[in-house]
């Protein structure tokens, strides 16, 4: 089910502004890859280009290639809507649909595929997704309550359940724990470990310990200067990046020394 991602020579533009320059990175199936780097270095933009969410902003475009198991993500026959159904995303702030119950939130993606489902079938999907997201035990008695009534950490796991209910190939996470307390964070990190067996996961994080804890590979992004595009400085096994990085900028960033 999980697919690999192969990015080569990717430039991302907003209008005439080059936001991310020349990224080449292979991402293996069923692995966790963490993107780290200072704010504004383009890691979120790059993450969003992997399911074409950056196109929400007017004038956004890319040059280069993104291959998902060999299939060109930006090919002429690829509809961004289908891309996003294949590649799920979890955002920085939990964003369950406030007007929907927990149950309907989990099924939101399924309903878009406009399949008519039997009640038993949708019950199964809801339970399976919530169990995978580690939320089932906490909400099974109040599935009809609004999702916005949950705590922040629960809401974020609800969003993860919503993303995986459609069984995507790849799961993108944009700083999923930055709005959460340490306990909720650790629950979500455990969850990432479990989800790795089924999904290819890419996570953006500002928390270096988190990158070290959850990821197999780490990619370090940096800006060469103010107003300059963000670049991928180096990518490698997480242990290597954290213990023995090649680039001095990576070492400086990881050790908390900047500039």
């Amino acid at each position: 089910m999980a697919k690999s991602i192969d990015v080569s020579d990717l430039n991302i533009y907003y209008g005439d502004f080059l936001a991310v320059e020349d990224v080449t990175i292979p991402i293996a199936a069923k692995s966790v890859t963490a993107f780290i780097g200072p704010s504004g270095c383009g890691k979120s933009t790059f993450l969003r280009s992997l399911n074409r969410m950056h196109e929400v902003i007017r004038g956004a475009r890319v040059e280069g290639k993104v291959l998902i198991d060999g299939q060109d993500l930006y090919g002429a026959d690829m509809d961004p809507v289908n891309v996003r159904r294949m590649i799920g995303m979890v955002f920085q702030r939990p964003n369950p649909f406030p007007t929907m119950s927990i149950y309907d939130n989990v099924l939101a993606g399924q309903k878009l595929n406009s399949k008519r489902m039997k009640k038993s079938e949708s019950d199964d999907i809801v339970e399976r997704s919530l169990r995978s997201a580690g939320l089932w035990a906490e909400v099974k008695d109040r599935l009809d309550r609004p999702g916005s009534g949950l705590s922040g950490g629960q809401q974020q796991r609800l969003c993860i359940a919503r993303a995986i209910s459609v069984e995507p190939e790849i799961l993108l996470m944009d700083e999923p724990c930055s709005a959460l307390d340490p306990i909720s964070t650790s629950v979500i990190e455990d969850l990432i470990h479990e989800l790795k067996s089924q999904y290819t996961i890419v996570i953006v994080t500002h928390n270096m310990q988190q990158a070290a804890r959850v990821s197999d590979e780490t990619a370090f992004f940096n800006l060469s200067g103010v107003g300059k595009p963000g670049r991928l400085i180096e990518v490698g096994r997480t242990e290597t990046i954290f213990s023995n990085p090649t680039d001095p900028a990576t070492e400086a960033y990881i050790q908390g020394r900047f500039g």
């Binding site: 399911n51 969410m53 929400v56 809507v81 289908n82 891309v83 996003r84 159904r85 294949m86 799920g88 995303m89 955002f91 964003n95 369950p96 649909f97 406030p98 939101a108 993606g109 878009l112 595929n113 969003c159 919503r162 993303a163 459609v166």
Partner: peptide, 9 residues
């Protein structure tokens, strides 16, 4: 919320 919907396809 808009992005949540779009990201679901």
């Amino acid at each position: 919320h808009e992005e949540a919907a779009l990201a679901l396809g």
